[in-house]
Amino acid sequence: MDGKVCLITGATGGIGQETAKALARLGATLVLSGRDAARTAATIAAVREAAPQARVESLLADLSSLASVRALAQAFRERHQRLDILVNNAGLIIDRREVTVDGYEATFATNHLSHFLLTHLLRDLLVASGPARIINVSSFGHAFANTDFLDDPQTANQPYRPLRVYGNAKLSNILFTKGLAKRLAGTQVTANALHPGAVRTGFGHNSQGIFRHLVKLGAPFMISSEKGARTSVYLAASPEVAGVSGEYFIKCRKAKPSSAARDEALAERLWQVSEELTGVKA
Results as ranks from 00 to 15, higher is better:
121 L>F: 09
202 G>T: 15
182 K>A: 12
120 H>D: 11
201 T>A: 04
220 P>L: 11
103 G>W: 06
60 L>F: 05
90 A>R: 15
107 T>R: 02
117 L>F: 05
14 G>H: 08
162 P>R: 03
193 A>E: 01
23 L>S: 06
252 C>P: 00
206 N>Y: 15
65 S>V: 15
6 C>D: 07
163 L>K: 04
66 L>K: 01
155 T>E: 14
148 D>M: 07
178 K>W: 06
34 G>S: 05
33 S>C: 12
133 R>L: 10
104 Y>D: 00
217 L>Y: 07
94 I>N: 10
203 F>I: 11
203 F>Q: 01
104 Y>G: 03
266 L>C: 04
89 N>S: 12
66 L>M: 08
79 R>V: 12
243 G>Q: 11
238 S>F: 09
93 I>S: 10
143 A>G: 04
36 D>A: 09
171 L>T: 00
68 S>P: 01
61 A>W: 02
138 S>E: 04
242 A>T: 15
82 R>N: 12
61 A>T: 06
213 H>V: 15
33 S>Q: 14
252 C>S: 15
180 L>K: 02
171 L>A: 03
243 G>W: 13
10 G>S: 11
229 A>S: 10
39 R>T: 08
198 A>L: 08
191 A>I: 05
60 L>R: 04
237 A>K: 07
187 T>Q: 07
141 G>K: 06
2 D>N: 13
115 H>A: 13
